Amino acid sequence: MSVLLRLASLLALLVVGAGLRTGGVLDDRRADWLNDAAYYVALPALIFVSTYSRSVSEILSPVLVVGVFVVFFGTAVVAFVVHRRHDASARRSVATVQSYHSNLGYLGVPLVAATFDDHVTAIASAILGMVSLVQIPLTVFVLSTINGADTTLRNELRRILTTPVLIALVAGLGVGSLGIPVPGAVAGGLDLVGQFALPLALLCVGSSLEIDLPAVDYGAVAGVVGLKILVMPTLAWAVFSTLHADTATFTAGVVMFATPTAVSTFVFANELGGDEAFASLNVFLTTLVSMGSLFVFLTVLG
């Protein structure tokens, strides 16, 4: 029941975020403030607190690294094959990237932190860091190549390497590996700030969700939802089981890859010639459907 109540509260926050945006309370300026608070303050604090007391060897096991990249690139390959039949490049490119591009930062790590212990959260933070290094460059490459858009991967890589999330992860692992003491007051303050990561992120996601129903391509939408919400976490389950991952690694891997399509894919689609309405609808539906699928995975994982 606790899992059901937790997910119901997550859905409620998404609805509140959407309602505040529709009612004009969260206009563009306020939504940006909320997004900055989550992205630059709460989420980095959560990641640092979950990793600063642990060394790299405790978190980054060979099983984790191999499992993460097998699941990520395996899903990406399946997405290329499944969506190659679409004639419209703008839709094909979006369908492909939204089938593997997960909302690991705004939903994944905060959800794991709210549900499991610090060790699982630390592993989830490492997954976020590893996948971020390949997820965004691959998405930019796919969209720009298929749509003939003009962009540079160098700028995207520079932006990734300077993100607060990755900096917080490196700082936390560095402090933990070197055994640098963190004052209790500092750790407690960061822990308190980090607890706001999930509600802030959900309000941000909710305020950004949009639906455009007039021209729905049901087959393409079903393909994206099926790959992202069912195939990717199922593949994660199979891969980490085959690799005999420990319980914490298995749990973090499955839950992180069970998250919906990232809202940022809509932004990338808008900038790089993708189908914006199609991208927006997929973000909304994968987020909505993931509430049910995450309930199943969290219940089974305990």
Rank of each mutant, 00 (worst) to 15 (best):
V267I: 15
F295K: 00
N147V: 04
L298E: 01
T242K: 01
S9P: 00
W237Y: 15
S53Q: 14
R84V: 06
G24T: 14
L7H: 12
P233G: 11
I59M: 11
P181S: 08
R54N: 00
A252I: 09
L11M: 07
G176S: 09
L178S: 14
V254L: 05
D191E: 15
F196H: 00
N282C: 13
D32K: 15
F257S: 10
Y218K: 00
G184P: 00
V68M: 07
L157R: 09
L230F: 15
V16S: 06
N103K: 12
E271F: 02
I229Q: 02
V63A: 13
T265K: 14
A79L: 06
T145H: 13
T121R: 10
A238M: 15
L20F: 10
L13V: 09
S57C: 05
L213M: 08
L34G: 09
F73E: 09
A238Y: 01
L190G: 03
L60F: 11
L213A: 06
A18N: 08
A114I: 04
F48D: 01
G189R: 06
Y40L: 15
G226N: 10
L190W: 12
G219M: 10
F196T: 15
L111G: 10
G129C: 06
L157G: 12
P110F: 03
R158I: 13
A90E: 12
I59A: 05
L138K: 02
F266V: 12
G226P: 03
H83T: 04
I127V: 14
Q98N: 10
A113F: 13
Q98E: 15
A90P: 00
F240Q: 05
A269K: 03
N103Y: 13
G226F: 02
M256L: 13
L7C: 11
S57R: 10
V267C: 01
V15A: 15
T242I: 13
A245R: 06
S208F: 08
I136P: 01
D275L: 12
V71Y: 03
A201N: 09
G17V: 10
R92Q: 11
V77E: 06
E58A: 14
N270M: 04
V267E: 04
S2N: 11
V193K: 07
T242N: 03
L111I: 09
V186K: 07
D27G: 11
L198N: 03
L202D: 12
R29N: 04
T152Q: 13
T162D: 05
T249K: 05
L288Y: 01
L272C: 03
S132Q: 12
V131A: 11
T152R: 15
S102K: 12
I136Y: 12
T234C: 02
Q195F: 01
N35E: 11
S264H: 13
S50H: 03
F69L: 08
L298S: 00
V120Y: 04
V255Q: 08
